[in-house]
């Protein structure tokens, strides 16, 4: 017992004097999840992190911190010490905070540990919709202007980006945009015929499509998806889409900029290893995500390109609050 107390005290002293980075981690790591329990970010992070813990030999305590489209969590981690003991577990949204007027911080204030996976957007329709594919939907919109109800999830969400893409490629579409607070509730509404069409991430719609509760109109990718090989790709209807694809939402783990390099390396290695574990790969595959598991410069370049493409796409569609130029986000080079 005496030994325990002594050990505890010396551990405290050690902890306070600031342990060396090669001992990292010497204490619990906090993982702040940007989205609520049960969401896809939450599911992904809670299933990959236990593997990373094993590699790291430490404990990562995960917390959901919701609100402000994830900005609350981002600002929280940005306010902590850059010592690698606070991880931000998030999705793509922060890259649009600046242009959407939602905050003045984004992933440029962070170092990516791992960009885990990329999702594929898909346009689905309710089974009762009077058309069966993308071309049919376009005809319907032209014949019945202002009648088609299309689901949305607020500015900056995946549906808004896909809609911006459609408006840019096809010219402004005269549809009703019905707002929901997430793709889950919107897809539920779709099955109940409250909306007709919804752009969603493939993983969220895949089970509904298999059961015949939704009709796939077009996969927003350059190649057919092996999970849904029969669903047509959008470029087969209009080749102009290829300028903007591939595009998709992603999940990533981040630390505050200024974190010691060896800590970043150690964390990146742990998550890279964790992302290889078979059950995680299977989970991502089942949900229709493609694995990336990139880190370092590759991840930085990915984030940069994603931000340029998306911010300018939204800006051209007139959906942004401020021009990407104001934040030094360059217009992507013409292809």
């Amino acid at each position: 017992m005496k030994k325990t107390v002594f050990g505890a005290v010396s551990a405290l002293v050690l902890g306070m004097s600031g342990a060396m980075a090669q001992d990292y981690p010497t204490k619990e790591i906090q993982g702040i999840i940007q989205w609520g329990a049960g969401g896809s970010t939450d599911t992904v992070m809670r299933s990959v992190t236990p593997h990373a813990e094993d590699v790291l030999g430490g404990t990562i305590v995960m917390q959901n911190m919701t609100g402000g489209v994830g900005a609350i969590a981002l600002n929280h981690v940005a306010g902590q010490k850059a010592d690698g003991y606070s991880l931000l577990m998030g999705a793509e949204n922060p890259l649009l905070y600046k242009v959407m007027g939602l905050g003045d911080k984004d992933y440029t204030d962070f170092t990516p540990i791992s960009i885990l996976a990329l999702g594929t957007p898909i346009l689905v329709a309710s089974p009762d919709a009077p058309f069966d594919d993308y071309a049919g939907m376009m005809d319907y919109i032209n014949e019945h202007p202002g009648e088609l109800r299309m689901g949305a999830t607020g500015p900056g969400g995946l549906p808004s980006v896909v809609t911006a893409m459609m408006n840019t490629v096809e010219g402004d579409l005269d549809v009703i945009s019905v707002p929901y607070d997430g793709d889950g509730p919107a897809l539920t509404a779709l099955q109940g015929n409250a909306i007709d069409v919804m752009p969603a991430v493939l993983g969220a719609a895949i089970e509904g499509i298999r059961a015949g509760k939704m009709k796939p109109l077009a996969v927003f990718d350059l190649d057919a998806n092996d999970k849904l090989p029969d669903a047509p790709i959008v470029t087969s209807f209009n080749a102009d889409y290829s300028d903007y694809l591939p595009w998709g939402p992603f999940f990533g783990v981040f630390v505050k900029k200024g974190t010691p390099d060896d800590v970043v390396t150690k964390l990146s290695a742990a998550y890279a290893e964790a992302a290889k574990s078979p059950d995680f790969v299977e989970l991502m595959d089942n949900r229709g995500f493609s694995m990336l598991a990139i880190s370092g410069d590759e991840a930085e370049a990915f984030l940069n390109k994603w931000q340029q493409n998306t911010a300018w796409l939204l800006d051209d569609a007139g959906l942004t609050k401020k021009s990407p130029e104001d934040f030094g986000i360059m217009r992507p080079a013409e292809k």
Partner: peptide
């Protein structure tokens, strides 16, 4: 419940990790 109350001047995280390791 792993609720991370503000640690303030107490080095809670080190303390817990120590016991966890033990």
């Amino acid at each position: 419940f792993t609720v991370l109350m503000p640690a303030g001047i107490m080095p809670e995280a080190e303390f817990i990790q120590f016991f966890r390791n033990m």
